[in-house]
Write a protein that binds this DNA or RNA. Structure first.
Lengths: 339, 339
DNA sequence: TGGTGTTACGAAAACGGTTTCGTGTTAATA
DNA sequence: TATTAACACGAAACCGTTTTCGTAACACCA
């Protein structure tokens, strides 16, 4: 087993001091040509690479970013993660991921773990439970310690920090407006049961668009489903019993499932009933019919989050100004709506 | 900004030595009841948490696992990752993810980066480019340094280390056999162009099943597509020109796309033509018709990989025995085949 | 010859912990 | 009373770096 070589080894071997080796490797002016060449040659020969941990301890900078997300088998989060990783990697940072599993406790534990020196800053999307409990002390503690934090998608107003979101309300508004312009009158909203910031925003946009276009708000056209629903009974009944000519779903899975119900009922998509989903993921693209969907530009979101974080991490002064970046979403029109 | 408190602070405040504080916090026998209580109370009050980096440096153990995968926006890898994260988390380990983006160079750079002290071991799936180049020096270097390595899914025989795979060949064999038992005679294989270990194995199983069942091997029924293909021309033509009654696809995207071609051609699934895909992901489940697919049990795979790695990391002796775990895959039958 | 300035290097502190070993104080024992 | 053991703690080394500061050796100049 080849042992990793350290400054100490080089120093001993070349009969110079550790400081000399360290300086020689950094091409310091202090060291003579001869010595530098000797040291550098030796280091290259034995493939010396400084120990990251030691450097982290010394510099009090780890070059690690902590990412905490509710789930990883989830297209949108994965997309954001890719953006984060991409930006981080190209700027010399590594990414440590923790999955909160929508659990408040796991979120807290993971944060505390990472906050003890493992990372230089956090990027996170709140777990459903955290949003429900409305308890953000763990975030507060971290920011009070001066650890930069960037929130994305699932955010809260209670914490002052940088944030990146998409214009959920606006996106829903536009989507519903489009449906109305296509002549749709009875537009359903399929949303989540549990309290999620984003779902609420989308619902707001839905209601506002109806109102602004002079359509009555009919609460019976709003269906709330469990976030991870497997049981199709509830949505099945909904489709059987209602007369609907368009549907806005807050995610693509809801949309795909509901399209099935519609097809089973004998409805033609998009002629009899139109569908628009959120999260323009793999399902929207490959569904049959292909689903018109609100693209959230997750990768861009991740890049922006990473950029915001790294800027804060690397800025010397404690900049107490935070910004919230609002990304424009895009409606990707496909076969489930009339063009 | 609340500064993080260290042993030194506590020692100064309580007018004892750093060693005493350290021992008191670990409930050492050496320290008197009084002192221990005093120190522990103080530590709790100021919410003292040891610095991970310092501990890592001292122990030469980071409690971090490095995971290098070709892509993260990819259902199977994500699933494996979830298994890894889950097991790691429950055993006190954090996970650092790097994405190789199917690039050899990125894989090498990321590995070297992490190998300098950041992690205790690696779990990885090789990039396509690495498999093509057949260059595994970076893996060799790492293992020679005594850093444990577990390979999953995209593996190589050139490196001695723990491995986890599914029985790709067997799975393909079973799938094709099933199609044959359903009376299918002209079974196509849609696979990848680039060299991927797994695709080759699946092709082997396909051929062997045909042979064992007395069906002629017709190379014109094998279609090779670029890994990330967007252009549907090639597969479109293939379906137009061939008489086929069943298709085995090495991933679900290929399957979904090809089902579209078949439907467009006026074929009925599964009556006229059956489809089986690999990677039982979200697409298989929600496709229309739902796709019969080989479940690779990614999460289980990740758990096993993590378990193997952590065992190696924590075992004192340099155990030079490696094992290859072969997971059984499962054929999930849905609407795209006849039951 | 004494003073000054370079040059080239080493000692040591620091980052924040853990751990070994030495030692002063007290109490028990011969 | 002298010896010994137990107790409770501190000093210091160590992990692998970086960086500040001190200084030996030499050259140069007046």
């Amino acid at each position: 087993m080849k042992q990793k070589i350290t400054l100490k080894h080089i120093a001993r071997e070349l009969e110079v001091s550790i400081s000399t080796v360290s300086k020689a490797l950094k091409n310091s002016e202090e060291i003579s040509r001869d010595t530098k060449e000797k040291v550098q040659a030796f280091a290259k020969l034995y493939n010396y690479k400084p120990n990251n941990i030691a450097i982290s301890l010394k510099n009090k900078r780890t070059k690690n970013i902590g990412v905490i997300i509710p789930d990883i088998v989830h297209h949108f989060f994965t997309t954001v993660f890719r953006g984060i990783e991409k930006y981080a990697d190209s700027h010399g940072y590594n990414v440590i991921v923790c999955v909160s599993d929508e659990s408040f406790d796991k979120e807290v534990i993971n944060m505390e773990m990472l906050a003890n020196g493992s990372i230089d800053g956090f990027i996170m999307a709140l777990s459903a439970e955290t949003q429900l409990k409305n308890d953000f002390n763990h975030l507060k503690e971290v920011t009070e310690q001066g650890i930069p934090l960037v929130l994305f998608d699932r955010i809260t107003d209670e914490i002052e920090c940088d944030k990146v979101v998409i214009d959920d309300k606006e996106a829903a508004y536009q989507a519903v407006t489009k449906l109305i312009n296509n002549g749709r009158k009875r537009i359903a909203l399929i949303t989540t049961e549990s309290y999620l910031n984003v779902s609420e925003k989308r619902a707001e946009g839905y209601f506002e668009a109806l109102k602004d276009n002079g359509l009555a708000i009919d609460e019976s056209l709003v269906l709330r489903l469990p976030y991870q629903y497997e049981d199709e009974q509830k949505s099945g009944k909904f489709f059987e019993s209602k007369e609907i000519d368009a549907v806005l779903c807050v995610n693509e899975i809801f949309a795909i499932r509901c399209m099935r119900h519609a097809i089973k009922k004998g409805l033609k998509i998009p002629e009899d009933i139109s569908f628009i989903g959120f999260t323009d993921g793999i399902l929207s693209k490959f569904a049959n019919p292909r689903l018109t969907s609100v693209a959230q530009h997750g990768e861009r979101m991740g890049e922006i989050a990473a950029q915001m974080l790294i800027e804060k991490v690397e800025s010397e002064e404690e900049n107490e100004t935070y910004r919230t970046e609002i990304l424009k979403s895009t409606l990707i029109e496909r076969e489930s709506t009339i063009n």
